[in-house]
Design a protein around this nucleic acid. Structure first.
Lengths: 246, 246
DNA sequence: AAATAATGTGTTTATTTTACACATTAAATT
DNA sequence: AATTTAATGTGTAAAATAAACACATTATTT
């Protein structure tokens, strides 16, 4: 071995050729995406789950996932997989975390990247041709397939954190909503009770609610006013927006 | 094709065999880890960079990274790679984000997971056998190799966010530090000026500082008291700890 | 001995958060 | 039709927190 080669090895210096060889041959791993889709219905936080693909695990529910193609951007794979499995296409997916223990998947070494989204259950029609696809109460989600419980827990925690920092929750509500709807949402996500009067004050002071001058329909008891979220105003103030404390 | 097979295809149902085949053959991708190691020295926030492995990119600095082995946990790979490249072994690495555009690496398709750490520059001896390994002022980091600038920016933003939520900064300081050191650190990380009196009040009220009854040595002008961080107390209160507002 | 440049401490004000009560409205009940 | 019911809608006082700000103290340097 040439002295130069030896020095390179010592220093972990690799040529592009060496790296290319490693990339192409020895060190490849299957990569998947799992989508955690949150919804809100009947005052409860929901998550979209399917029966596991695999017969062995068919008694368990799992997240929406599939392998990333080698010629496909990671983000693009997330959107493709979500579309394939649910028909959903006009939703925003956000990367949450990557899970990579060696034995996490029964089919071999699969590292998975979790993506999370918040959607409006009413406005998005699901394509239920796929394996049993169901909304589940977040509170009743236990014992998912593989390591999906851990992935789900991580995403729920992240959601709880994020929703205190930015008013993301609106993505889960219909275009028109009452303040009661909004409070139910936050209480469901954070799993806490909030004071109705202070909650209103806080959201009015944020000044992201547009009064529609309409009332709720078909509710028993006094109907509340309907509002919509001012996405434009939020977009402008997003950068310097600090947070929501409850 | 049997009707059953067709139905399966329609529904995207795969058998374990099909998935195993995909995992083993068609869909594998190289996976790497990049380590973003922050330090603090001379009242400045620093980051550890090396010259790019690749000659083509040797004029640019890059993050500490390498490929994950197929039989290696993702987290373990991060620790191994950091150890190999710097000699550092007793540091905590935290996953930040995964970067996966198709063309991000010149050697082919490589998806990379970024890991971040905060270390004490004085207490950790670096193994500089590797490619030129240097601490760089965070403020002067521009134009890193590949997409490393984007990765670095993401990690710095995350650090700025996290340091407002938890008193992580202590990992960057020596065991004994003055309140001026601590304030310099926060000002360097957040790139803002803080009021000295209010800063002290805030940290004393958090009650994580242990007065060592020692004074700074070898400083010009009046020396300040030295403190250490009460990791034990922080560990106990960590869960319900809300945040640090400046 | 005086000047310097930092440390160390406290108060006042403004802002934000929390706790809490009552009048109003429309539907449901009698 | 009158009453009950169960929600909406509003305001205020107290407490906690954050922001603005000034001066005495100490060790070093001149």
């Amino acid at each position: 071995m040439l002295a130069e080669e030896k020095a390179k090895q010592l220093k972990n210096i690799k040529t592009l050729q060496v790296i290319q060889s490693e990339v192409e041959n020895t060190n490849r791993i299957a990569l998947s995406v799992d989508c955690i889709i949150f919804g809100f219905d009947e005052a409860k936080l929901k998550v979209l789950l399917i029966r596991s693909d695999l017969k062995k695990y068919s008694s368990k529910w799992s997240l929406l996932g599939d392998l990333v193609f080698p010629n496909e951007d990671l983000d693009a794979a997330a959107y493709r997989i979500l579309k394939q499995r649910t028909g959903l296409s006009d939703v925003y997916l956000e990367q949450v975390s990557t899970f990579g223990t060696v034995d996490r998947h029964p089919a071999g070494r699969v590292v998975t990247v979790a993506y999370c989204s918040l959607i409006n259950v009413q406005h998005h029609k699901l394509n239920i041709l796929d394996n049993e696809l169901h909304w589940h109460d977040v509170k009743s989600v236990t014992d998912l397939a593989f390591d999906h419980q851990q992935i789900f827990d991580t995403c729920l925690q992240q959601l709880q954190k994020r929703v205190r920092e930015h008013p993301l929750g609106f993505n889960l509500l219909p275009k028109k909503f009452s303040l009661r709807d909004l409070q139910n949402l936050y209480e469901a996500i954070l799993d806490i009770k909030l004071d109705r009067r202070n909650f209103r004050k806080k959201f009015f002071s944020m000044d992201f609610l547009i009064d529609l001058n309409e009332m709720e329909q078909e509710v028993s008891h006094r109907p509340g006013k309907l509002y919509k979220f001012d996405y434009e105003k939020y977009g402008k103030r997003k950068k310097k927006f600090v947070g929501i404390d409850f």
